[in-house]
Design a protein around this nucleic acid. Structure first.
Length: 506
RNA sequence: GGCCCGUUCGUCUAAGGGUUAGGACACCACCCUUUCACGGUGGGGAUACGAGUUCGAAUCUCGUACGGGCUACCA
């Protein structure tokens, strides 16, 4: 029986979507699309204490910007909703109780204090963090140690309790990870994870299994940090829905920062973005700049993320989303973690800017310029300018420096770059140049350059020595595209005006 | 501490028993350009260590070391 491919991404609305998160979405998305399947998003919002207002919208905004919108989700609808864990509360309890009845789980009445005490009392050098496992549970207050009557009474009294899975002893649980191959665990070493919390909400462990079943998920992919809890999930599948219905698993390698798993604080620490888009930490009110705002193109962003842990076996590095969908394969995803390299990330963006058509850059550049107080009215000029300067822009904001002087007369000039070598002779040259330019009919870069050369030779000055002064006069500093092309786009009147303004400056 | 995953240039990676171990980013030099880039050419730079299997190991096996993850009524 061939199940239709359905994969899901399950973010918890507790913060911004960072590199690892977006890459997980990406791989899920690519796999689903490659196999003509569905990509859905389910929100894990059952931890009320950590829920952050606005985070859910932020997640969908990010997916939208990246071009990875789900087929089914809270925002997009679908046949298997609701897509929020909190709205599926009822069914989780039912499954948890079924597990208790079948002897695979039990009620536990231990208070947080008692758990704390347990961890303290059983702590040894050999076991620095004792778990609620088969050796400990017989010493705790739960339906395994209490009599049926005691348990029933506690339940009837409404005593706060959780439901824990009863991990079997001395069993080996193993599964085939699509990336790592067979992975196995000794169940004696796994603890009795809480399945249903005292507030009636499920933990991730219960929810992921119940929802994946309910939503008919065929492949479940997530970060490597989940590997240790896989045996819990596999056992739940076995007890609840049957192993034959369990999705295929893959655990992606972690994206590492300079020091281990990339953390949200690494950005500020090392000076590169970690979130896809701007994220304001609700606790500290601190704004963390995102890749989007930093000036990355979404195409470049997903491209660089895709290559952080995967490649198609060739030497190709620049891929469109369509190419990624076509070429992606889970087998070629790495098993080792990858350290994020911001320099390489910028290189990807640079490549994408060079590759992008003027049309797709236009509105972004226009916005950036208008933020600097430059309102572009001549769209034809803007297009020409973008074409001329895009090769030298790595991040979108680079367009500001590279192109604002086309639309605005410089307000300051790098006088020091010219002054030391400035003299009357050169001033004379520029005066002459102005009148030559005034008499020029054809205003294009080649004509201007020839004119410039001839005038220079006539004045016995090397043309090269005059180019920098001209540049400073036209753009204000030592940057920008070739100077005669600038003059060509600036137009006759403006070029002459700028030379005339600056000629007495040195 | 226990469990799990991992280990090829500084970084991302190719090479699924036989290659001078390839590419990209970064770095350096030269060329192009009298701005800054782009581009071009070249350079330095890696199979963690030790055993085993094999005619032959980066590749398979084991051990060691190192790195990472997990070890919550968080996901």
């Amino acid at each position: 029986m061939n199940k239709k491919v359905r994969v899901r991404f399950a973010p918890s609305p507790t913060g911004g979507l960072h590199l690892g998160g977006v890459r997980t979405v990406l791989y899920n998305y690519l796999f689903a699309k490659k196999h003509g399947g569905d990509f859905l998003v389910r929100i894990e919002d059952t931890d009320q204490s950590r829920y952050v207002a606005g985070a859910e919208e932020y997640i969908f905004d990010t997916l939208k910007w990246c071009g990875l919108e789900p087929d089914e989700s809270v925002q997009h609808g679908g046949d298997y909703g609701p897509y929020r864990q909190s709205e599926r509360k009822a069914s989780y309890r039912q499954y948890a109780e079924q597990l208790v009845n079948d002897g695979h789980a039990y009620y536990a009445f231990d208070t947080p204090d008692e758990l704390e005490k347990m961890r303290h009392n059983f702590k040894t050098d050999q076991n620095t963090s004792p778990q609620y496992d088969h050796t400990i549970r017989i010493k705790m207050k739960n339906s395994l140690t209490l009599t049926d009557e005691e348990t029933k009474k506690l339940l009837a009294d409404g005593t706060r309790h959780v439901i824990r899975i009863k991990m079997p002893e001395n069993e080996t649980v193993s599964f085939i990870d699509m990336i790592r191959g067979e992975v196995s665990f000794d169940t004696s070493l796994v603890d009795d994870k809480v399945l249903l919390k005292a507030d009636g909400m499920p933990t991730y462990h219960l929810a992921v299994v119940v929802d994946d079943y309910g939503m008919k998920i065929s492949h479940a992919f997530r970060g490597e940090e989940w590997l240790p809890s896989a045996p819990v999930h596999i056992l739940l599948w076995k007890y609840l829905f049957g192993l034959e219905n369990m999705p295929q698993w893959a655990h992606f390698p972690l994206i590492l920062g300079p020091n281990g798993k990339l953390s949200k604080r690494d950005g500020a620490k090392y000076g590169f973005p970690v979130f896809a888009m701007n994220w304001t930490d609700p606790k500290t009110n601190e704004l963390v700049e995102g890749f989007k705002e930093k000036g990355f193109l979404p195409e470049a962003f997903i491209n660089l993320l895709a290559l952080l842990g995967w490649n198609d076996g060739s030497e190709q590095e620049i891929f469109t989303k369509e190419e990624l969908i076509e070429k992606f394969s889970m087998e070629r995803v790495h098993s080792a973690g990858a350290k994020f390299d911001y320099d390489k990330a910028k290189w990807f963006n640079h490549e994408w800017i060079k590759k992008s058509g003027v049309g797709s850059l236009e509105s972004g550049v226009k916005n950036l310029l208008s933020k600097e107080g430059i309102n572009v009215t001549d769209d034809v000029l803007l297009k020409k300018v973008i074409e001329l300067v895009k090769d030298r822009c790595t991040l979108l904001p680079d367009f500001v420096q590279q192109s604002s002087f086309f639309f605005k007369t410089p307000e300051s000039w790098d006088v020091d770059a010219v002054k030391p070598k400035w003299n009357e002779q050169k001033k004379q040259f520029f005066t002459e140049l102005i009148s030559n330019f005034e008499n020029t009919d054809k205003w294009d870069a080649t004509v201007l350059e020839n004119n410039f050369q001839t005038t220079a030779v006539a004045n016995h000055i090397k043309p090269g020595e005059l180019q920098l002064p001209l540049r400073i006069m036209l753009v204000g500093g030592k940057f920008g595209p070739p100077v005669f092309q600038i003059a060509a786009l600036l137009g006759k009147e403006e070029t002459i005006k700028r030379i005339r303004t600056a000629i007495n400056m040195f």
